[in-house]
């Protein structure tokens, strides 16, 4: 196709990239990864497909996993107790394989709102929530969530009254945290699937409240 034939009815800005290309030059870490990967393949230690499959496995989590568990806990008090006392076992009950060393569920109450941050890097319950959102790994969130959580929450649109304490959980070591939000009022008749749809990623991080039912 030459320039003369290139006339169609949309503006090229419509498909401008949504983010800047960041792989034009390799970082030191990327170069090291590619060198190690090609050595492992050349030496027959593992295949390219095995490495790809492992990356796919690592990224298979999604917020729906945590939402399913919390919705079950909202309708089944015995399951809720099991989830609070052993989150990994409660995940396994629903067929969810959690690869984290240790998972902890923390329950929001009328007296305490909980939120999670990893000030050191990006520790996150990936098996139950998938990859962390961009805000979670940003230095702004990591430094401010511990310092001024109420202000950060207000920026997320969540205004916690002073009568409710805020507990910030720094996920700095071996535990990974799931926040169990309070079940919204007016959801008594909803099915477990409909309840799960109210539980968003950010509500499980503690930066939002569940969606109010329509």
């Amino acid at each position: 196709m030459n320039g003369d034939e290139h006339n169609h009815d949309h503006d090229h800005d419509d498909h401008a990239p949504t983010r800047e290309d960041d792989d034009l030059e390799l970082t030191e870490g990327e170069a090291r990864f590619l060198a190690l990967k090609s050595l492992l393949i050349e030496q027959g230690v593992m295949t390219a497909d095995e490495i790809r499959a492992r990356m796919e496995f690592n990224e298979r989590g999604s917020p729906h996993q945590a939402a399913r568990m919390i919705a079950r806990a909202w309708v089944d008090p015995a399951y809720k107790e099991r989830m609070l006392s052993d989150t990994k076992a409660a995940a396994a009950e629903l067929g969810i394989e959690a690869t984290e060393a240790a998972l902890v569920t923390i329950e929001n109450t009328p007296k305490r709102h909980n939120m999670v941050v990893c000030t050191l890097c990006s520790c996150y319950p990936r098996s139950l929530l998938g990859e962390p959102p961009a805000f979670y790994v940003s230095k702004a969130y990591r430094s401010r969530a511990v310092r001024e959580p109420r202000k950060v929450l207000r920026e997320f649109g969540v205004d916690i009254p002073d009568a409710v304490d805020i507990a910030v959980h720094d996920s700095n070591a071996d535990l990974r945290y799931v926040i169990m939000p309070m079940r919204p009022a007016g959801t008594e008749g909803l099915s477990e699937d409909d309840l799960a749809a109210l539980i968003t990623r950010d509500s499980v991080v503690g930066c939002a409240l569940p969606v109010e039912p329509a």
Binding site: D162, D165, A167, V168, H169, D170, L175
Partner: peptide, 11 residues
Amino acid sequence: DGAPGDVLEIE
């Protein structure tokens, strides 16, 4: 700047 009962937990 928050409520007196606000806490932080860390490992």
